[in-house]
């Protein structure tokens, strides 16, 4: 077992690798974490995700822009790919399965990919339909996979209106499904009008929302563990 000090050092290394978009160091630190017997979950949440939270803050403060964000995401994935096979399946009390995609007419998928990353981190099963997705495909995929969350992204006003159709159709076929919409033109007002459960305004907010989601999952995880310990 790793000493507390070694553990702290490795978490810091993972965190910094993400912040400094250093894929090689992220891989190296992930492998070290595993070989010293650190819990993969711990390395992911307190190392990689902690780094991404800082990246989110820097993005908001305009210290980082989208290119940096994308490179940080690459570093996170470099570590995640190594750690993920070692994650012990935890009973989170939620079924983590999500259908995600950019609506037809829209070929911008960077925002969508950032949200997807956070779901990957959280251990969700992600059904990524990609970009320019015909509207009825969202509904078909939700029914096929029985996912409880559907995320729709539109970068342009010109495609946003298509989301309403998907939401209406999803509600008719499956009233219990949760729907989150996001993208530059989307507002709380639009989300309310379209009948979505949640919204993420832009990359920053998407990241924040997704991080909040991960944070609440973490809390649930802790509660589950606390119960187990009793």
């Amino acid at each position: 077992m790793a000493t507390e000090e070694k553990k702290k050092e490795l978490l810091e290394k993972l965190r910094n690798a993400v912040i400094q978009y250093d894929e090689d160091t992220a891989k190296e630190a992930a492998n070290e974490a595993l070989s010293t017997g650190m819990e993969a979950n711990d390395a992911i949440f307190n190392g990689l995700v902690s780094g991404m939270v800082e990246v989110g803050r820097m993005f908001e403060a305009q210290e980082y822009f989208v290119p940096e964000l994308l490179m940080c995401a690459d570093a996170l994935y470099a570590g995640l790919d190594i750690l993920k096979p070692h994650v012990k399946q935890l009973d989170l009390g939620v079924k983590g399965s999500v259908v995600i995609g950019t609506v037809e007419g829209d070929v911008h998928d960077i925002g969508k990919n950032i949200v997807k990353m956070m779901f990957d981190v959280a251990g969700f099963t992600v059904y990524d339909l990609g970009r320019d997705v015909p509207l009825d495909k969202f509904v078909a995929e939700q029914l096929r996979t029985d996912s409880d969350l559907v995320c729709l992204s539109a970068m342009m006003t010109t495609t946003m209106t298509g989301m309403k159709k998907v939401i209406d159709d999803l509600r008719t076929k499956n009233p219990n499904v949760k729907i989150m919409i996001g993208g530059a033109p989307v507002s709380q007002d639009v989300a309310d009008k379209y009948g979505a459960d949640g919204y993420a305004k832009d990359a920053t907010n998407a990241l924040k929302d997704a991080i909040n989601m991960v944070a609440s999952l973490k809390k649930m995880k802790d509660e589950v563990e606390a119960k187990k310990a009793k």
């Binding site: 037809e104 007419g105 070929v107 320019d132 342009m156 010109t158 495609t159 209106t161 298509g162």
Partner: peptide, 8 residues
């Protein structure tokens, strides 16, 4: 498409 989709 009958919708207002811009070419991509």
């Amino acid at each position: 498409s009958e919708d207002l989709l811009y070419p991509t």
